[in-house]
Write a protein that binds this DNA or RNA. Sequence first.
DNA 1: TTTGAAATGATATGATGTATCATCAGGTTT
DNA 2: AAACCTGATGATACATCATATCATTTCAAA
Lengths: 153, 153
Amino acid sequence: MSNLDKIMDRAEDSCRAHGARLTNKRKQVLSGLLKSEKAMSAYELVDFCRDEYGESLPPMSVYRILEFLQQESLVHKLSLANKYIACAHIACDHDHGVPQFLICSHCQRVEEITINQATIDTLKQNVESAGFHLVSPQLEMNCLCDRCKDSTV
Amino acid sequence: MSNLDKIMDRAEDSCRAHGARLTNKRKQVLSGLLKSEKAMSAYELVDFCRDEYGESLPPMSVYRILEFLQQESLVHKLSLANKYIACAHIACDHDHGVPQFLICSHCQRVEEITINQATIDTLKQNVESAGFHLVSPQLEMNCLCDRCKDSTV
DNA sequence: TTTGAAATGATATGATGTATCATCAGGTTT
DNA sequence: AAACCTGATGATACATCATATCATTTCAAA
């Protein structure tokens, strides 16, 4: 069983546990993101599904499906890039924690890492001091990856 | 001399120090953001300039001006909201540090706070461990502000 | 097998952002 | 002052991202 299949199975289990259905179209979008191993825009996913599955999936549907997948914590939206990416921890047993996305401004490569609890607590405390309350915390940072840093020096 | 005037003066000084010109149109956009005391989209600024100054400033120009103001660190782009906001520290003498924006998902109010150095160092260290390098660090977080939290409970 | 809710399709449109070439304004040189 | 250069702005078109709305399909439960 391939790694992709394992992840898709776990995704399906997770949906079922919430009483939600991981339909065929939803699987197509999710596996598209998993296969591509990068962040993709909704319209890129439209093209991908057409090319890969020979099915025309209108943009509206893709957006709806992406929204569903985000609710299920299977996909994250990267606001810095206006793109969507599969969660890197779908098949992990540990708690996912607060995701932090490092986005290479040069090659668009994205790395998802997890912030340690102490740092989150500090951030959260700052937020509370300012009279605000965190909602679905997620951090995104504009970076250069190693390769691009070297190649642009 | 009003606070707004003071800030605009400081902005102009700062530009001059970089050999850049804070032209009339650029002042209009910046003071629009300062007067409104909130984040605005480029097209909202187009409307604002038309209404406030009776001048038609095409969207393309507003985008160019916003880009200029960002380079001068007078304006920040909020990617979570696709809006722009005046830097809260234009007239401050202290170093600005890494800005963190708390955006109320409900009323769109934005608070700019500064993260303490230790937290930044930790974040930066995490980023380096992952083989990435920070570029223009800035954090944005989806929050609820006090008022909206109370009103929605 | 009906039927009701959820998912998807179709269509239109709004919102955000950029490419490109033309024109204008303000200094500098002569 | 006139010519000239550069940076700023205008005009136009278009690309990209996203949502509103109503119609149709699918699928599981009654």
